[in-house]
Simulated assay, not measured.
Amino acid sequence: MTDPGVSFTNDIAKQAVCMSKVKQKKMVQSAVVRGDEVTLVGFGYFETVLAKLRTGHNPRTGERADIGEKRRSKFTVARSRPPCWAHPSCPFWPA
């Protein structure tokens, strides 16, 4: 027989984790919209970049159209370890 208190406690913990993830996502989104760089240690970082002016075309008519500059978010994956470790000249290279 399961204890109903344990189930209730786990449900509250799951809700708290879910709410914390939602809040974290909203904080990251609002920071990127403001133009700030957001770093998630060990995961990567988000930054805002300006996409260049480019020429596109309407696939239905074939007419060319200029697509203006636009701010976009960009994610870059974090490196698993410093790049110098992969080179024998690094002082931390295993002997």
Results as ranks from 00 to 15, higher is better:
Gly44Gln: 11
Lys23Thr: 11
Arg54Asp: 04
Gly35Pro: 03
Val32His: 01
Lys21Gln: 13
Gln24His: 07
Val22Gln: 10
Val32Asp: 00
Ala31Glu: 04
Leu53Val: 06
Ser20Glu: 12
Phe46Met: 05
Thr39Tyr: 09
Lys52Glu: 12
Met27Trp: 04
Gly42Cys: 05
Gly44Phe: 10
Ser30Lys: 11
Val22Cys: 03
Ser20Asp: 05
Gly35Ser: 11
Ser20Pro: 01
Arg54Asn: 08
Gln29Ser: 12
Glu37Met: 12
Val33Ile: 15
Leu40Cys: 13
Met27Asn: 10
Val28Met: 08
Lys23Pro: 00
Val38Tyr: 04
Val32Ala: 12
Leu53Lys: 15
Ser30Met: 09
Met19Gln: 14
Glu37Gly: 03
Ala51Arg: 14
Ser20Thr: 14
Gln24Cys: 08
Gln29Ile: 13
Val41Met: 10
Lys25Met: 09
Phe43Thr: 06
Lys21Met: 13
Lys25Gln: 08
Val33Lys: 13
Gly42Asp: 06
Glu47Pro: 00
Arg34Leu: 14
Met27His: 04
Met27Arg: 05
Val38Phe: 05
Gly35Glu: 06
Asp36Cys: 10
Gly44Asn: 06
Lys26His: 09
Gln29Cys: 11
Gly56Asp: 04
Leu53Gln: 15
Val33Thr: 12
Leu53Arg: 14
Arg34Glu: 11
Phe46Ala: 03
Phe46Tyr: 11
Thr48Phe: 01
Met19Thr: 10
Lys26Val: 08
Glu37Thr: 15
Leu40Asp: 04
Thr48Gln: 15
Val22His: 03
Val38Ala: 01
Ser30Thr: 10
Lys23Val: 10
Tyr45Cys: 04
Gly42Lys: 07
Leu50Trp: 03
Tyr45Val: 02
Lys21Phe: 12
Phe43Ile: 15
Val33Leu: 13
Gly44Leu: 07
Thr48Asp: 01
Thr55Gly: 00
Lys21Ser: 06
Arg54Cys: 09
Ser20Phe: 05
Val33Cys: 05
Leu40Arg: 05
Gln24Pro: 00
Asp36Leu: 08
Val41Gln: 11
